[in-house]
C-alpha cells in the first residue's frame, strides 16, 4: 500500500475505534439502563477539549494565534486521564441536576438543551476555548519518540486506540453481565420495582451518567489527539443522534450489535457519502446524510426495534412469556 492509502486506512480505523468506545458508552446509558442522554456529545467534547488543553501548553506560547483558559503541556497518558476524570465529573454534575424529578421524556429534552447551551457558550466566549474557530495544532502524543513518524506513527496510534477499545469492551461486557448489570436492566424495565427491591434507580442512573461520561470523554480525547483540532461545529447537538442511531440499529444493550452499528453508521455512511459523484453540493449532501440517519432510525424502530443483533436475555427458572425485552419496552412498553 502506498502511504496515502495507509493514512486513509489508519484514519478510518481510528474513527472506528473512537466510535466503538462512544457507542458502548451511550449503550450503557440508553441501551442497558434506559436513560435518554440527549446531551451525550457534550461529554465526548469535554474530553476532547480537556485533552487538548492538557497538551497544548499555555496560550501565550501560541503568540496570540488562539485563546483559551489554562493550558498545560503534560506527558502522554496524563491528558487522556485528565479527560476521563473531567468527563466523569461532568457526568456527575449534569446527572445531578438533569436527572431530577422530571418525566423521562422531558429529562431528555433538558439534556438536549444542555448540549445546545454548551455550544452557545463556547461559541460566544472567545477567550474560553477559542470560540467558533476551535482549538487546533494540538500536539500528537509521543510523536518523535521512538522514531515514530508519518505512517508508522499513524499505525501505532491505531494500536493505542484499539487497545483502549479492547479495555473498554472488557469493562463494559463484565459490567453488563454482572449482578450490577442486572440492577441497571431492572431500572430500565421497571424503575419503581427496582426501587422497591432496595436498588435506588436514581443512584443507578447517576452512576451510568458518570461512567458513560468518562468513556465518552475518553473517545473524545483519543479522537482529538489524532485529528489535532476540535471546534464547536463538530459537536452540534445532532451529533448525539448518530450514536443513538448506532445503538438502535445495532441492538440496544447488545455489545456486538452496537459494534456492527458503529461500523455501519459512523464509518460506512460517512464514507459512502464521500464516494457519491462529485459535483453534488457538499452542504446538500451533508443535509441528506442526516435525513438518511433519521429515516434509518424510524425504519428500525418500526420494522426491527430490537436491532440487527438483539440483546440476549437470560431467563431464570421457567421461561415466562411476560419477560420483557428492551426492544419490546420501546415498541410496546409500559408508559413510563
Amino acid at each position: 500500500m502506498n502511504s496515502a492509502v495507509q493514512l486513509y486506512a489508519t484514519t478510518l480505523l481510528v474513527y472506528l475505534a473512537v466510535n466503538l468506545i462512544a457507542s458502548w458508552a451511550l449503550d450503557i446509558q440508553f441501551g442497558v439502563t434506559g436513560v435518554l442522554n440527549f446531551g451525550f456529545i457534550l461529554f465526548q467534547s469535554a474530553g476532547a477539549y480537556t485533552a487538548a488543553l492538557l497538551s497544548l501548553g499555555p496560550a501565550r506560547a501560541s503568540g496570540g494565534f488562539q485563546q483559551y483558559i489554562g493550558g498545560w503541556q503534560l506527558p502522554f497518558p496524563l491528558p487522556i486521564v485528565g479527560a476521563i476524570l473531567v468527563g466523569a465529573a461532568l457526568g456527575w454534575l449534569v446527572g445531578w441536576v438533569g436527572l431530577r424529578r422530571l418525566r423521562g421524556d422531558f429529562q431528555a429534552v433538558v439534556l438536549l438543551v444542555v448540549s445546545v447551551v454548551a455550544t452557545l457558550v463556547v461559541e460566544s466566549v472567545p477567550g474560553f476555548l477559542n470560540g467558533d474557530a476551535g482549538l487546533s495544532l494540538i500536539p500528537k502524543p509521543l510523536s518523535g519518540v521512538a522514531g515514530l513518524t508519518g505512517v508508522t506513527y499513524a499505525w501505532a496510534y491505531v494500536g493505542l486506540c484499539f487497545l483502549s477499545c479492547g479495555l473498554v469492551a472488557i469493562l463494559v461486557a463484565r459490567l453488563v453481565h454482572s449482578p450490577y448489570g442486572r440492577v441497571l436492566r431492572a431500572v430500565r424495565e421497571n424503575d419503581a420495582l427496582a426501587d422497591a427491591m432496595g436498588r435506588s434507580s436514581t443512584r443507578a442512573r447517576l452512576q451510568v451518567f458518570v461512567l458513560g461520561g468518562a468513556l465518552a470523554a475518553l473517545s473524545g480525547a483519543l479522537l482529538v489527539e489524532f485529528t489535532t483540532a476540535w471546534a464547536p461545529s463538530g459537536w452540534l447537538y445532532p451529533e448525539t443522534f448518530v450514536y443513538f442511531t448506532i445503538v438502535i440499529i445495532g441492538g440496544r444493550a447488545s455489545l456486538p450489535g452496537v459494534a456492527v452499528g458503529a461500523a455501519l453508521i459512523a464509518v460506512g455512511i460517512q464514507q459512502a457519502v464521500q464516494l457519491l459523484p462529485i459535483g453534488a453540493d457538499a452542504t446538500v449532501l451533508a443535509s441528506l446524510q442526516w435525513v438518511v440517519i433519521g429515516l434509518l432510525t424510524l425504519a428500525f424502530l418500526w420494522w426491527r426495534p430490537q436491532g440487527l443483533i438483539p440483546e440476549r436475555v437470560r431467563r431464570f427458572g421457567a421461561p415466562s412469556p411476560s419477560t420483557p425485552l428492551a426492544a419490546e419496552k420501546l415498541s410496546e412498553g409500559a408508559g413510563s
Partner: peptide, 22 residues
C-alpha cells in the same frame, strides 16, 4: 403500535432531524 413515551421522544427527534435537514 404501542410505542412508549420513552420511544416517542426518539421518534420525534428523528423526525425533527429529518425536517431540519430537508
Amino acid at each position: 403500535r404501542g410505542t412508549s413515551t420513552f420511544g416517542m421522544v426518539i421518534v420525534t427527534i428523528s423526525t425533527a432531524l429529518i425536517g431540519q435537514n430537508l
